[in-house]
C-alpha cells in the first residue's frame, strides 16, 4: 500500500440527507491504476460514497457534506464541477445510452469538450469502442441507435462513452448487476484491461466479483444510527483471507448482509 500513488482521497468525509447522516467520517486513499472495490450490505452508503467523487450528489438539493474529497490532492468541492466530471467518469448500474446513434453516444462527451472535427471524432470513437471491447460488434452499425444493442453491449457502449473524454478515474456503480453472467464476465475482463490506463473504483454487492477483479477492497457498514462507516480497507487478498475486523469476517463469510 505504501508504494502506491494516491489518485483520490477522502478525509473525514461525512454526508447528510437533510438531517439524516448517511456517511460518517470516512478516510480512504484510492490508489492510482488499481481497481478498488466498495462492498457492504445494501443501504451502507457505498453508492452514495462513490457518487461523492464526481459530485453527482450535488443533484440532490437536501444533501450537505463535511470533510474533504481530493482528486490529485485538490479539493473536488473547489473544482469546476464540469472539469471534475470530465476527469472522473462514471458508469451506472443500468446501462443508460442516450437515444442517439452509437457514434453520437461516444462522441457526445468529446463534442462538449471541444472536439468538433469529424475525422478526429471518428478516430476517438473507434479508439474508445476498441478499448471498451465492443468495437468488433458494432463497427458496421455506428449509425444505429445505442438503444438497439443488448444490455451487455449497451453497458460497454457506456464505458466507451466514459473513456472517450479521457478521464483519469472511472467510477462504476454496480456496472454488471443488470447483466447476465456472460456479459458480466466480459465487463470484468475489460476492467482488468482498463486499469492499465485508468484508476477504477467499483461498487458491487457481489463479493465474488470484488474478489475476482479488485486489487483493493473497502468494506462499509452502517452503525447503530444507520450512518455508513468505513470498517476496513486493504488489499483484496488481505481482506478476503485475513480480515482484521470481526464484522468484515462475518460479512465475507456470509454471516449477514
Amino acid at each position: 500500500m505504501e508504494t502506491e500513488v494516491t489518485r483520490m482521497q477522502a478525509e473525514d468525509y461525512s454526508l447528510f440527507y437533510g438531517k439524516f447522516k448517511a456517511l460518517n467520517k470516512i478516510n480512504i486513499k484510492i490508489p492510482s491504476n488499481r481497481i478498488t472495490a466498495f462492498i457492504g450490505p445494501s443501504g451502507c452508503g457505498k453508492s452514495t460514497f462513490l457518487r461523492s467523487f464526481n459530485r453527482m450528489n450535488d443533484l440532490i438539493p437536501s444533501v450537505t457534506t463535511s470533510g474533504t474529497v481530493f482528486l490529485d490532492n485538490r479539493d473536488v468541492a473547489k473544482e469546476d464541477v464540469v472539469e471534475l466530471r470530465k476527469k472522473v467518469g462514471m458508469v451506472f448500474q443500468r446501462p443508460n445510452p442516450f437515444p442517439k446513434s452509437i457514434f453520437d453516444n461516444v462522441a457526445y462527451g468529446p463534442r462538449l469538450h471541444g472536439t468538433k472535427n469529424r475525422s478526429d471524432l471518428a478516430v476517438l470513437v473507434e479508439r474508445s469502442l476498441r478499448q471498451a471491447a465492443v468495437w468488433d460488434e458494432v463497427k458496421d452499425d455506428l449509425h444505429k441507435s445505442g438503444m438497439s444493442l443488448s444490455g451487455g453491449q449497451q453497458q460497454r457502449l457506456c464505458i466507451a462513452r466514459a473513456i472517450a473524454v479521457e478521464p483519469e478515474v472511472i467510477l462504476m456503480d454496480e456496472p454488471a448487476s443488470a447483466l447476465d453472467p456472460v456479459a458480466t464476465l466480459k465487463i470484468e475482463e475489460l476492467m482488468n484491461e482498463l486499469k492499465k490506463n485508468y484508476t477504477i473504483a467499483i461498487v458491487t454487492h457481489n463479493m465474488q466479483q470484488a474478489g475476482r477483479v479488485s486489487d483493493y477492497t473497502a468494506f462499509l457498514l452502517t452503525d447503530e444510527n444507520r450512518a455508513g462507516n468505513l470498517i476496513e480497507f486493504g488489499s483484496t487478498k488481505q481482506i478476503f483471507t485475513t480480515p482484521s475486523d470481526s464484522r468484515t469476517e462475518d460479512y465475507i463469510s456470509g454471516r449477514f448482509g
Binding site: N54, M56, L59, V82, E83, L84, R85, K86, G89, M90, F92, R94, N96, P97, F98, P99, Y108, G109, L112, H113, C158, R161, A162, V165
Partner: peptide, 13 residues
C-alpha cells in the same frame, strides 16, 4: 428517464 440526465452530467456536460 433520469439515467439520461445523470449520464450526460457525469460526462462533464
Amino acid at each position: 428517464p433520469r439515467g439520461y440526465r445523470e449520464g450526460s452530467l457525469a460526462l462533464g456536460a
